[in-house]
Amino acid sequence: MSSTLLLIQILNGLQFGVILFLIAAGLTLVFGVMDFINLAHGVQYMVGAYLTAAFAAATGSFWLGLALALPAALLIGLALELLVFRHLYERSHLDQVLATFGVIIFLGEAVRMVWGSAPIGVEMPEALSGSIEIAPGLLYPVWRLVIIAAGLGVGIGLYLTVHHTRIGMLMRAGASNAPMVSALGVDIRLLFTLVFGFGAMLAGFAGAMVAPILSVEPGMGDGILILAFVVIVIGGIGSIRGAFVAALLIGLVDTLGRFLAPMLLRLLLDPAAASQTGRALAPMLVYILMAVTLFVRPAGLFPARR
């Protein structure tokens, strides 16, 4: 009984980790290539979820909604890059943090004005809405498996792109020495913009995928953004591989922590107190993990070569 529950929690942890990876991938690329801290990356996730919700409601199909939401998320990302972020690349990290903080406030409120503060739901595709038996007597929602598969697919695709294509080579080179790449005749600004738009679209994709299983609401990107930062710091800034490993690690630690901490605390406290304290203490685990990682390896697990 307990072991099947544990298996479910592990799958949930993987699913959460995969979502974290989709968000962290763009963040770490933008960070690695442009040395730019984008706090507003989380709103791309929120925007992706809202756009999918809106387009799915309008067309009556999740897939059509997703197909429309992705280019829309890309456009919003590019518009933000053009209007705000482009002016911040040369600025200090402090300025970047603040200006993108302003973008969060603005877009969070904009979403609230258009769709209201109440959470909205998204219908998941009929064919994938059921559960399947993944082990004898153990049912698991198909959609979560789809998310895991999609995330793993994107991860492999990204890895191949970054390490085995010309644009990936330019990205890695741009991360370590932008002026040199510029000198080779590559339009570094265009490269930055591409990387940026692509990262924004990935975060939007993550938002779209979770829209059917989470409530879509303003501020949904804030909490997960902080976790995505934890992921890229643990993984090593600029490293796709690091982001992937760290995202799964954080997803598992966070999910299993929430599951196991109340159970362990029950040995010490009465059940009601144990479940509340455990639920609240579990989120601290990932931050402790990050502090320990930075203490031991200040540049993260897989430092990108500088």
Binding site: F31, I37, H93, V97, I226, F229, V230, V233, I237, A273, Q276, T277, R279, A280, L281, P283, M284, Y287, I288, M290, A291, L294, F295, P298, A299
Partner: peptide, 27 residues
Amino acid sequence: MRTDGVHFIMITLAFGQMLYFLATALS
């Protein structure tokens, strides 16, 4: 203080979050 730059920003953020969640745990 062993870290610097971006890592310092992030680690202080992490410690802040730790305390935040600790406060939510004070049932």
